[in-house]
């Protein structure tokens, strides 16, 4: 008798469905990547390999500005949200369970659940009144907004790492005369570092990719790469956009690969 144990891969249509899903997911991306190296403007016909779209995009001052702005916002938002997330993760794992812990947990992860458009509108109204009151128009609003919605992305891998950490290590440090601060700096933090870096990368990628909140919060002339691309695509699709997308894709793949390496359970 053959092995009769249940396996999803033997359900009827499993293989066909899987192939279809993979095609639907990756074929458009593949076409876009190919398009960014295509000599011609049409995505339909291959007219020889070229890197000229990349060069052209980079020569475009709008692209350059948007890229720098995106990187500045994403870097700052990643650092800020990771700092907050680290403190939140320690506060929610390194103490006895307390009343309202679940509530706080939900609050921290709220950006994952509240529809982004709601947050965006709320921030728009909130920041508008601040703009009126202070007259400040700078990038601060975008950085603040991104920092806030990146917190749960940074929080989750840090919390996972903390929960997997042997608590007796911290007890041992205290036993060996380390003050609470030194215990944190010499034991908890070094062991937590892979989680923190992973969280920071996830926050960075999330910020880099954001459209909805950015569109609502940004002032005139504060386009990030995604909002710039959106504006361009509305007018006319140029392989320049494909090239930018390909670079973003490559960056994301590199960061996510690092993320998986860092969060992988060792031995």
């Amino acid at each position: 008798m053959a092995d009769r144990s249940f396996s999803a891969s033997r359900l009827p249509g499993f293989t066909a469905t899987a192939i279809f899903v993979f095609i639907a997911l990756y074929l458009p991306i593949l076409m876009l990547v190919i398009g960014s190296f295509n000599g011609g403007e049409s995505i339909g016909a291959w007219q020889g390999f070229t890197l000229s779209w990349f060069a052209k995009a980079w020569a475009n001052d709008h692209v350059k500005d948007a890229t720098i702005r995106s990187l500045v916002i994403a870097s700052l938002a990643a650092v800020i949200s990771t700092t907050v997330a680290t403190m939140a993760a320690i506060a929610t794992t390194r103490r006895r369970p307390f009343r309202g812990q679940t509530f706080i947990y939900l609050m921290i992860n709220q950006p994952l659940m509240v529809p982004e458009i709601v947050t965006a509108v709320a921030l728009l109204i909130f920041f508008a009144s601040i703009k009126v009151a202070t007259g400040y128009q700078g990038l601060g609003y975008l950085i603040a907004a991104h920092s806030a919605f990146c917190v749960p992305f940074a929080y989750l891998p840090i919390r996972a790492r903390l929960e997997g950490m042997d608590l007796t290590l911290e007890t041992a440090a205290a036993d060996l005369y380390a003050s609470p601060w030194l215990t944190f700096r010499r034991v908890t933090l070094p062991l937590l570092l892979p989680g923190i870096i992973a969280g920071m990368m996830l926050a960075f990628v999330t910020s880099l990719d954001d459209v909805v909140i950015t569109l609502f919060v940004k002032s005139a002339g504060q386009d990030t790469l995604p909002t710039y691309m959106l504006a361009q695509v509305r007018r006319q699709i140029s392989p320049e956009i494909y090239a930018i997308s390909t670079v973003l894709l490559a960056l994301t793949i590199v960061l996510l690969t690092l993320f998986f390496i860092l969060t992988r359970k060792k031995d």
Binding site: D166, T168, L169, T171, A172, A173, A174, D175, L176, Y177, A178, S179, T183, V187
Partner: peptide, 16 residues
């Protein structure tokens, strides 16, 4: 604990 001149050998060793 960090103010006590007492040290522990843990069952799980708890080496860093």
């Amino acid at each position: 604990p960090n103010k006590r001149p007492v040290n522990t050998v843990f069952q799980s060793y708890a080496l860093f």
